[in-house]
């Protein structure tokens, strides 16, 4: 699905103060891309995600899915639209009162699928994320990485055409982060799906995304293809994010492993 944001503005007002979290943000990405939105805490990236995923309505501006305006939809229409939107979260947000399988079944129950189709789809989705043997497992028995896999299966079960990831790997260790990103890339390659990832980790953008928008103080400061932005970062904030990666990856082993993962041949001398 093609996501387009036009001149979005959002201000949150409390009794004490008002904060403009999103200032005149316009973004336009190609169909079925993996898009990274990166920014520091408080940069406005989560607010932007809530606007783009229709959880909140913008004060000004428009959100388009495949050229159709979708902000300010009537309630019924909006709830129907939501079945086309998948979402995963930093804290997984799984239902602890349900098993892994029943979590995946939840959006299908909302969509009114019949029992047999639900069972079949649940098996299919759990197999897709490599947890076919955990269908009956209570959520509390799963590891962080397994929980995020269940969350991905749940988000994608009703066949959405856009997946929003809200800091989806921030609670995971580097190895598990890597596995989850690989899984998202694998799924993306086999489905007709746009992925929008909110993150504060440049590694996530580098390892998984095709396009990136860098957000600072509610504004987009830089946007473009990931390869271009990494080659010639223009904004100071972008450079800061890039230097953070370099600092975190001093070890030669990790650099070699990264190159090998990406299909380069590395000869050790």
């Amino acid at each position: 699905m093609q996501l387009k944001l036009e001149h979005l503005n959002k201000t949150y007002t409390t009794k004490r103060a008002s904060v403009t979290a999103v200032k005149d943000i316009s973004l336009d990405f190609p169909d079925n891309a993996i898009i990274g939105i990166i920014g520091k805490s408080g940069a406005g990236k989560s607010s932007l995600l809530r606007l783009a995923s229709l959880l909140e309505t913008p004060d000004q501006g428009e959100v388009y899915y495949d050229g159709v305006r979708v902000d300010h939809l009537p309630k019924k229409e909006l709830n129907r639209r939501r079945l086309e939107i998948g979402m995963i979260f930093q804290n997984f947000n799984l239902f602890s009162s349900r098993t892994a399988g029943k979590n995946v079944a939840f959006p299908l129950e909302l969509a009114g699928w019949n029992r047999r189709d639900i069972d079949e789809r649940v098996h299919e989705m759990l197999a897709l994320v490599g947890l076919e043997d955990r269908e009956k497992s209570p959520i509390a028995t799963l590891s962080g990485g397994q929980k995020q896999r269940v969350a991905i299966a749940r988000a994608l079960a009703p066949r959405p055409n856009i997946l929003f990831c809200d800091e989806a790997t921030s609670a995971l260790d580097p190895q598990t982060t890597h596995e989850i990103l690989d899984l998202i890339k694998k799924i993306h390659a086999n489905m007709n799906l746009t992925v929008v990832m909110i993150t504060h980790q440049m590694e996530v953008v580098r390892d998984a995304c095709q396009y990136v928008a860098v957000i600072d103080k509610g504004c987009v400061v830089e946007t473009g293809a990931v390869s271009d932005v990494f080659r010639s970062p223009k904004h100071e904030i972008t450079r800061e994010f890039l230097s953070n990666i370099r600092r975190s990856e001093i070890s030669v082993e990790s650099a070699i492993a990264y190159l090998q993962d990406n299909g380069y041949e590395v000869s050790k001398r």
């Binding site: 709830n79 079945l83 979402m87 979260f89 947000n93 799984l94 909302l110 969509a111």
Partner: peptide, 21 residues
């Protein structure tokens, strides 16, 4: 957990479904 409620709303659950399910 508010996050769990948010997840249900994001999946298109109505208020009644959020409470009941």
């Amino acid at each position: 957990d508010k996050g769990v409620i948010q997840a249900a709303v994001a999946m298109g659950a109505s208020k009644r479904q959020v409470v009941r399910k």
